[in-house]
Nucleic acid binder design. Sequence first.
DNA 1: TAGATTGTTAATCGATTAACAATC
DNA 2: TAGATTGTTAATCGATTAACAATC
Lengths: 209, 209
Amino acid sequence: MGSISKHTLQRLPTYLAYLKSLPCADNACISAAAIAAALELGEVQVRKDLSAVGSAGKPRIGYPVNDLIQHLEYFLGYSTRNRAVLVGVGNLGLALLSYGGFADYGLDIVGAFDSNPALIGLQIDGRPVLSMDELPTFCQRENVQIGILAVPSAAAQPCCDALIAGGVRAVWNFAPVHLKAPDGVLIQRENMASSLALLSYHLKQPERN
Amino acid sequence: MGSISKHTLQRLPTYLAYLKSLPCADNACISAAAIAAALELGEVQVRKDLSAVGSAGKPRIGYPVNDLIQHLEYFLGYSTRNRAVLVGVGNLGLALLSYGGFADYGLDIVGAFDSNPALIGLQIDGRPVLSMDELPTFCQRENVQIGILAVPSAAAQPCCDALIAGGVRAVWNFAPVHLKAPDGVLIQRENMASSLALLSYHLKQPERN
DNA sequence: TAGATTGTTAATCGATTAACAATC
DNA sequence: TAGATTGTTAATCGATTAACAATC
């Protein structure tokens, strides 16, 4: 409950996406074994994960798909809106800003920041691009809870500090650096360099999986 | 060596990025404790990780920074080029294509594919956007080893299959779905939905770290 | 009832951390 | 030499998996 494991939490969106991809017959049920097979997980793991969020199945029948979807969406807070700002309107930042899909996960990007004067004053899909100076004030005034960092490595720590000064308690960091933050602030790094390391290491291996 | 753990492998790019960020005095050395403090890791873990890739330090002195950088770059294959194609030239795909930074990690995106006829025939920073039909042939002819998937969920599995048909052995999947592939093909998922789940769960917690 | 599937307790596995000997 | 730091073996911790009782 309060003590749900990080690994379990990370698998939940995958369960949800899979369940939503299913042809939706009302009242349909699915077994843990079927979910496990589709996602190539252990079936005990699926049952444990689902029971950790409080979903119950029925012996001999399985889990009601629609209930499960609702339960997972509720647990993951996809209907609770989280307000975010994006810092760094470069290639990646612009893509994250323009990509509409995060709204499905409860994430609303309400503003963007950049140090480039040529960008300041623009509106991107209705969100203003503002100067870095305004960041802490904006975050406080607009009740921003999440900061998305898509700035160069060297700028990442100062930008992170500015976000925290603005009261942000969760930072999604796309820069390939480790950031420091006080207790109570979560830094979640999207570590693309690590992903690439796994891919390239795999290719170096003679014939392993 | 051949049995380096996944977790270790994922930390290596972080060590490398940190070491590169250091002011470079030739012959400078650094202790495992210093690296650990900077990255908020255990110092034994740092020593174990470094020794796993064959880097040696000297008691009382530490690890020579420049050697370590070279060693890590070599191990991670940043100077060995890997040829990749990008599938799905939407917001995210275009950003990945335009972002020049992957070249530092040894990744060369040599072509892009999309099903939208309006995009086919374009050149983006010198890389052609081609039709999906040409994907397997292109991959084989151009010796492509990595496929980057930035397509909508529903298209991900067929696109993945096309990549594999073209001889690709490593797939970097940005779509929020689990993909199936034969043994010997690595699917590395960049799971943004999982990252968001961790961020939003943290915000729901009363006052935890 | 018999059989399938859940939920949970116990066992295993792998990664992290602690302890300590080796070495410069 | 004394002291700091490495490298490695043993202990701990947490997550996954196996075993099995409960239940529809």
